[in-house]
């Protein structure tokens, strides 16, 4: 709107009887006015943006913030045990997933009874195999409790699988309800063990 008024006043610049130098002066004033307006606009927009966005530099720091005290490093014997168990851990988790999705798919009617039974039996068989592998490990004294915890978790999964399989015999879903807390506890135990010997197993996702 302001720019239009300036433009209209500039119309007079070239009107008969006015000198050319005056016209030129007004034209220059018009251009200067437009520039000031544009700068004002940019200024307002930047003010608004500043108010609503971050100044990244404020939070920027090249220094590492203080950390919680680091855990003691594992000894070579502990490290060797952690690596050996890690090689088995993937299979334990895979069997746990198989158990969970067997139940999930059955409940969601994405799998029938025979398919459910096959999945649970497969998982159960896997747990039996990994139990033998875990038992074959020789933990250092400092990790004997961790070792026992891990075996407990595998046993819980096995018990859960056995309970779930009863569904195939009598078709009653309450076996799934009875089995669930066992798998839940086993899964929590896996995390507790991981926290002891595999820090960083799960990163922020």
């Amino acid at each position: 709107m302001v720019a239009s008024q300036d433009a209209s006043s500039a119309i007079g610049v070239g009107a008969p009887g006015r000198s050319g130098s005056q016209g030129l002066l007004r034209a220059k004033l018009l251009v200067a006015g437009l520039i000031v307006l544009a700068l004002l606009g940019v200024f307002c927009a930047s003010l608004l943006r500043e108010a609503t966005t971050t100044s990244r530099t404020a939070g920027a720091t090249a220094r590492r913030p203080s950390l919680t005290p680091p855990r003691p490093a594992l000894t070579p014997a502990e490290e060797a045990y952690a690596q050996a168990l890690w090689a088995i851990h993937g299979d334990v988790k895979s069997a746990a997933y198989k158990l969970t999705f067997s139940g999930l798919r059955y409940k969601l009617k994405q799998a029938d009874g025979p398919e459910f039974g096959t999945g649970v039996r497969d998982a159960s068989k896997s747990f039996g195999q990994v139990e033998a592998r875990v038992r074959a490990l020789a933990p250092p004294p400092s990790l004997r409790q961790v070792h026992a915890q891990y075996l407990d978790a595998v046993h819980l999964f096995q018990r859960s699988a056995a309970e779930m399989l009863k569904v195939t015999a009598d078709g009653r879903d309450d076996h799934l309800l009875a089995a669930h807390p066992l798998s839940q506890e086993a899964s929590e135990t896996l995390l507790r063990v991981g926290n002891m010997i595999w820090p960083g197993e799960y990163l922020p996702n």
Binding site: W86, H89, T100, Q184, S187, E188, L190, W198, L203, N205
Partner: peptide, 22 residues
């Protein structure tokens, strides 16, 4: 589900521990 020694990050199943799925 175990992508590196002691860790699991970018593979498609990594972010879902057994407990979360439970």
């Amino acid at each position: 589900v175990n992508t590196s020694q002691g860790g699991c990050a970018r593979t498609p199943a990594c972010g879902y521990p057994p407990l979360t799925l439970q």
